[in-house]
Every structure is written in C-alpha cells, then in structure tokens.
Amino acid sequence: MMPQLRTLTMMRGTRARILRKICRNCPNLTTLQLHGCQKMNYSLLKYIFEKCPKIEKLIIANNLLADRQYAELVSRLEHLQSLEVFENRRGAGPVVLRFLAATCSKLREINLSCDYHPLEDVEYFVKAKRDTLTSATVRWTMAGKRPGCLPLLQKLDLPHATDLPDDAVVTISRGCPPLRHLSLTFATSLTDGALAEIHRLKHLQILDLSGCSGLGGSAVAHVAQLAALCTLLLQYIDDLTELQPSLRHVLDLKQLRCLDILYSGHIRAVAFEEFSVRLVNLRELHVTYEEEDEVFYKNVFAEMQSQMPRLRIINTFRWTENDFLTDYETDDDDDTDIGY
C-alpha cells in the first residue's frame, strides 16, 4: 500500500496475485525491474502495464521481448523512455527490435548488452533512433557500418569490444558532440591513435578505458585535453608504466573528481605526491597495491589524506596465485573441500 512508490525492483520471482496487488496499489511507478525467474504470461504483463501506465524505465528479460505479443504490450507504454534487456534464456529467439524502434516513439535509452538480437537489427534500431537516442549500450560489430553521427547521444557503452578499431573511436569523437559518458572497456585492439580526436568531446565527464591493454605512451596526453572530465577509469591495466611518459598528464585534469585504477599494476608510475597540489578537486581514488607494498602505500596515502582531507581513498590488495590454497597445500587432517 504505497501509492507514491516510483521505483520497484523485483530481486526474485513472486506469486502472480502478489505482483498484481502491488501494481494495483502503486499506480505512480516510473521504474520497474522484473526478475528473470518471474513466471509471466500475457494477461499478467498486460495487467501490470494497465495498472502502472506511467512507466518510464523498464528492465525486462530477453525471452519476453522475443515474443511479438509481449513486445506489443511494451510498445503501449506511452511514457517509456528507457529499456534494458537482460539475458535470461538461451534459444528464446531474437528481441523484436525493429518493431520496438517503430512503435516506442519516446524511447531514448537502450541497453542491449546481451546477445539475443541480430546485429543487423541493432544497426536498424540505432539508425531509426539516431535523432532521439541519448544512451546506448550495444555490442560492437564489424559487420556493416554504424551511423557516425548521433547528435543527441550522451552515453555510449561498448563493453568487451575486443575488435573495436581506432577509426571507430575517432568517428565517435567527431559524430557524437554531446557525449558525456563513454565506456570502451576491454577494447584490447585500441591504440593511442584512437584517442587522437577525443578532445572534440568537450562535454565528456566520464571516460572508462579499463582493460584497454593496447594503449601506450601518449594515450593520457590525449585524455588530458578533456577539460570537463570528472571521472577516469583505468582498471585492469597490467602495467601502468606502459602509459608513460604521458601518465603524468593525469595531473592536468583540473576538474577530475574520481580516479579509478583498481586492479592495475605498477602503480608507482602514478605521481601521487603531486595530487594535493595539482588535483585539488579530487574526491575519490580507487587503487590496488601488492601486499608487500602495504607499508609504503599506507604512508603515501596517509600523507595524501593529511593534505587532502576531503579525499576518499578506496584501496585493496592485489591478489596473486600464492594467495590461493591448492589441494596439496591443505592440512591432511582437514577433510573440508575448499573451493575458490
């Protein structure tokens, strides 16, 4: 009995009668996430949408949107602006993206990180929504060409795009001027040339280059030209010294509030001692260090925090193979089956 409830996230399946009662008493829902284990039929989903007609953001399983009847129900949500499709069932058939592109007139955010849709349908959807799309999480494909200009796009996530070429990022830099959030995690094919024109993204606030192991000595110099950048993620870079000599250009990011280098190695390459003078707006530092360096970095970070009292440092150990027990290292008297 919460008539003003705006967001409902179902973390497990529940009985249909309970879900019906919740939706009947919460007519003002704007965000709904249904769990993948939720038993759903046409009449139940129709009832949910009829009782909660104000839904703006929907998070739903791929197997439901593989059925044209269910997709039609989704298309009747007049206020739907954001759609996230998560992986639930293999072999369920492709999500009917072409139909949704034609019928969901206000849809401007799409998250299609799962694999249950033909790539040509993704390209069709992006092209059809090029003048309204503001946020997209999609699989990268070398088949066909995506449109180079998405004039309203503010967030773009291309996760695990291992074959993403440099010129694709250059095209994004030229064609998506309002971009505020760009994530290229584990794009291992990228080199420094991919960032040559990233300075064109004058509004970019969040940049995630985690796992981009092909970047080298001039990458951070290009990134440092992003005057509005507030958050930089460089996680899972095995050796940060490979970003030298331009790694020092992190100090030129005057608006930087969060630097995240969790799970990256050789962090001594980072000029922590100059942060208090050069990065006065920094509020969060996420960092991982080897256990043998614990004393050294405790002193380094203690000194930093004495000079930057508003800075929050989140740190953890860097695990190695030696940190995990193997079968022959366990106590013979202990019959416990240890698994990691």
Rank of each mutant, 00 (worst) to 15 (best):
Ser173Trp: 09
Ser210Asp: 10
Leu195Gly: 06
Arg200Pro: 05
Leu234Lys: 00
Leu209Lys: 08
Leu182Thr: 01
Ser213Met: 08
Arg200Thr: 12
Val220Phe: 02
Lys202Val: 15
Leu204Trp: 00
Pro177Met: 10
Val220Asp: 02
Leu215Glu: 11
Asp239Ala: 10
Ile198Ala: 08
Asp239Thr: 05
Gly211Asn: 09
Ser183Arg: 13
Leu209Val: 11
Val220Thr: 01
Glu197Met: 07
Thr171Asp: 15
Leu226Ala: 02
Leu243Phe: 02
Ile237Gln: 13
Ile206Met: 09
Arg200Ala: 14
Pro245Arg: 10
Gly193Lys: 12
Leu201Phe: 03
Val223Gln: 01
Asp239Met: 04
Pro177Leu: 11
Val220Trp: 00
Asp208Ala: 02
Leu229Thr: 01
Glu242Arg: 14
Arg200Glu: 15
Leu234His: 01
Ile237Met: 14
Ala227Thr: 14
Ile172Val: 15
Asp239Val: 07
Gly214Leu: 06
Glu242Pro: 02
Leu179Phe: 00
Leu233Ile: 07
Asp239Asn: 15
Glu197Cys: 07
Leu182Glu: 00
Ala194Phe: 05
Leu215Trp: 08
His199Lys: 12
Leu209Thr: 12
Asp192Tyr: 05
Gly214Trp: 04
Thr171Phe: 04
Thr231Met: 09
Gly211Ser: 08
Val170Arg: 15
Leu204Arg: 00
Thr188Val: 15
Cys176Asp: 05
Leu233Tyr: 12
Ile172Met: 10
Gly175Ala: 14
Ile237Tyr: 04
Thr231Phe: 04
Ala194Ile: 10
Ile198Glu: 08
Leu195Phe: 14
Gly175Asp: 13
Ala221Val: 03
Ala219Met: 06
Thr185Asn: 13
Leu184Thr: 09
Arg180Glu: 13
Gln244Met: 06
Gln225Ser: 08
Thr231Val: 15
Thr231Asp: 11
Gln235Met: 12
Gly216Ile: 10
Gly214Phe: 05
Cys176Arg: 01
Leu243Arg: 00
Gly217Ala: 12
Ser189Thr: 13
Arg180Ser: 04
Ala227Gly: 06
Pro245Tyr: 06
Leu226Thr: 01
Ser210Cys: 06
His181Lys: 07
Leu195His: 06
Asp192Thr: 06
Glu197Asn: 13
His181Glu: 09
Cys212Asn: 12
Ala227Lys: 14
Arg200Cys: 13
His181Asn: 10
His203Tyr: 10
Ile206Arg: 03
Arg180Trp: 02
Pro177Lys: 06
Ile237Glu: 08
Leu229Phe: 04
Ala194Ser: 15
Cys176Pro: 03
Ala196Ser: 15
Ala219Ile: 08
Phe186Ile: 07
Thr185Tyr: 05
Gly217Pro: 02
Leu195Pro: 05
Gly216Gln: 14
Gln235Pro: 01
Leu182Ser: 00
Ile206Lys: 02
Ile237Val: 14
Gln244Leu: 13
Leu204Phe: 01
Pro178Arg: 02
Arg180Cys: 05
Cys230Val: 09
His203Ala: 10
His222Phe: 09
Tyr236Pro: 01
Gln205Asp: 05
Thr231Cys: 11
Ala224Ile: 01
Gln244Asn: 12
Gln235Leu: 05
Leu195Asn: 07
Ala194His: 07
Glu242Asp: 12
Ser189Arg: 15
Ala187Glu: 11
Val223Asp: 02
Val223Ala: 01
Leu179Met: 00
Ala187Ser: 15
Ser183Ile: 11
Tyr236Cys: 11
Thr188Lys: 12
Cys212Trp: 05
Gly216Asp: 10
Arg180Asp: 03
Ala196Asp: 11
Cys212Gln: 07
Gly217Glu: 12
